[in-house]
Design a binder for these strands. Sequence first.
DNA 1: TGCCCGATTAACT
DNA 2: GTTAATCGGGCAA
Length: 203
Amino acid sequence: MLQRHKINPSNAAGGLIGRDFFARSVHAVAPDLIGALFLFNGVGGRIVEVEAYHHTDPAAHSFRGLTERNAVMFGPPGFAYVYRSYGIHWCVNFVCEPEGSASAVLIRAIEPIEGIPTMRRRRGLSDLRLLCAGPGRVGQALGITRKHNGLALDAPPFELRLRTGTVEVAVGPRIGITKAVDHPWRYGLMGSPFLSKPFKPAA
DNA sequence: TGCCCGATTAACT
DNA sequence: GTTAATCGGGCAA
């Protein structure tokens, strides 16, 4: 339930995240994104919650093979997969692993830091805690839509930076799925008030 | 083609 | 606790 994570020693803390960061297993990338800075057109904050999806995972969009919607997941790592959720929301994923593995990390919650007035206007909401506390809310607050599907993560409008220092990462089952529900592939910043839902405390 | 359901959210009782 | 909003994917016919 509780993990302590250190940054990749080959990268400088706070430095730009390059495309090679995503050329690893989705299960390695996902916890390493906790605490990272995620800006889109200069708007965003710290990533505090993500989930991992893999093409061997029945809950993943890529499980049933390549379609027009999930094509970016089957491409090279380091690109954004954006999809429409429940016909209403836009959700953002970071594609991982070598080309063809079709895995990605869903960005589920951010601690607002930059462009807070812009995010409040887009969300029509002042409550900081709820600005980016959920995948659909993140998409709306950062202004990400279908037209950003397939963009590279290491170039504008994206800006991703490694976390500084050590964080405590909570692990638990993913949210809102009906298949492969027992995989503990949800990762969060321990104790953050900006999570979409709290993690169950360690037994 | 028609039907069901989903990696969600907000507004209800 | 429940439910509407809303649309693309996947599958049956």
